[in-house]
């Protein structure tokens, strides 16, 4: 075979091809591939993170719901307690009011009795005096016996 200057020509062509492949072809393709790999990895990581977050959110929601239920139960409890208290209070008040009215009525009755008794006493003494006048047939000196009558009336 004849080796000649074609060899050098081919070597030059080859080195140019290699040079341009190294500078212009390999890096962009490699970079695109690596970038895509990174994107996919990121995407997978994000998906995993999302799933994890969703799990956490579900947990949180369950917790919140149970808390709310607990609070509602508490509120109901308190309300029931309060209602009982109010009823008790009202009962006490009513009892007190009744007592008060009862004693007021009793006091009034007492007063009325006293007044009636006073009145009756006056009337009885006047009646007694009139009766005595009739019995004695003469004028009784009211002045002279006034003291006696008064003490009598006081005894009634």
């Amino acid at each position: 075979m004849n080796i000649n200057v074609t060899l050098l020509g081919q070597m030059i062509t080859f080195s140019l091809l290699v040079y341009f492949t190294m500078k212009k072809v390999w890096p962009p393709i490699m970079q695109a591939m690596q970038e895509r790999q990174k994107r996919i990895a990121d995407g997978l990581a994000a998906a995993e993170r999302g799933a994890h977050e969703q799990e956490l959110a579900a947990e949180r929601a369950a917790l919140t719901i149970s808390e709310a239920k607990q609070q509602a139960a508490e509120v109901i409890n308190q309300a029931q307690k309060r209602a009982g208290e109010i009823i008790e209070e009202a009962k006490a008040q009513a009892r007190e009011e009744g007592q008060r009215q009862l004693s007021a009525a009793q006091a009034e009755i007492g007063q009325e009795t006293t007044r009636a008794r006073e009145q009756l006493r006056g009337e009885v003494s006047a009646l007694a005096l009139a009766g005595a006048e009739k019995v004695l047939g003469r004028e009784i000196d009211a002045k002279a016996h006034g003291e006696l009558l008064k003490s009598l009336a006081a005894e009634l």
Binding site: T6, T21, I29, R39
Partner: peptide, 25 residues
């Protein structure tokens, strides 16, 4: 030899250069 190897080299380079220029992630 020179012509065909250079032409084929250009075919290779053009194809890959086009792919590389438009390469996207």
């Amino acid at each position: 030899t020179m012509f065909f190897s250079l032409a084929l080299g250009l075919v290779f380079y053009m194809i890959f250069r086009r792919a590389a220029a438009a390469a996207t992630a």
